[in-house]
Amino acid sequence: MLDQTLVALVSAAGAAVASAAGTDAWHGLRQRVARVFGRGDGAEERVLLERLDGSVVELEGAGPEERQQVRARVMAAWEARFHDLLEDAADEDRAELVRHLNELVRFGLQPSGGVSAGTGGLALDGTVDIRADRGSAAAGVMGDVTIGNPQRPGPGHS
């Protein structure tokens, strides 16, 4: 049985796989995952690469309305694989596996040249449609917002 720290680590590793699938970070992350599971066995690494690629195919085949559910399923599947890997590892091997999983999670969290936002910001990649109607306001980051009718331009304003 894994302690809470290791359970959190396998959860983060599963999330890293699901988040990176189909992104620029995918190639590097999938190689790391295959090495963690394969531990030097080339045949085992190839099997893992096929499984990882299957996760991407599954995500890419999902329609927009089901993509979140598929991503959650992929995350849970990889979380379970990481959990089993750690739980089945001999005590002398577990520390090294934990180190590799921590590296994998850190790699998965690095920006891959995509979008990023600072504290209080909102970063989105893909199509975004933000609308405000009927006197409402919409923004990714809101500071001082005043809702009301704008002032009419005076002379010299167009």
Rank of each mutant, 00 (worst) to 15 (best):
A80K: 15
M142W: 08
A90Q: 14
Q4P: 04
T119F: 02
Q68C: 02
G28Y: 04
L122H: 05
D88H: 14
V33W: 00
S112K: 03
T146D: 05
R106S: 03
D3N: 14
L122G: 04
G121D: 05
T5L: 00
E87G: 00
D125H: 15
A76M: 05
D133I: 15
N102H: 07
E92T: 03
P153M: 02
R67G: 04
L29W: 07
E79K: 15
G126P: 02
L9S: 05
E66A: 14
M75T: 14
L29T: 05
E66S: 12
A90K: 13
E96T: 11
T119C: 00
E87M: 03
E58H: 06
Q4C: 00
A76I: 04
G154Q: 15
E96A: 03
D3W: 03
R46V: 09
Q68T: 12
L109H: 07
E58T: 12
G156I: 12
G42R: 15
G154T: 12
L9K: 13
E103Y: 00
H157Y: 14
S158D: 13
A15K: 09
L104M: 14
G42P: 15
H27L: 09
L124I: 15
R35L: 05
G143F: 08
H100Y: 10
G140C: 05
A80P: 09
A18I: 14
G121H: 03
P150E: 02
S116H: 11
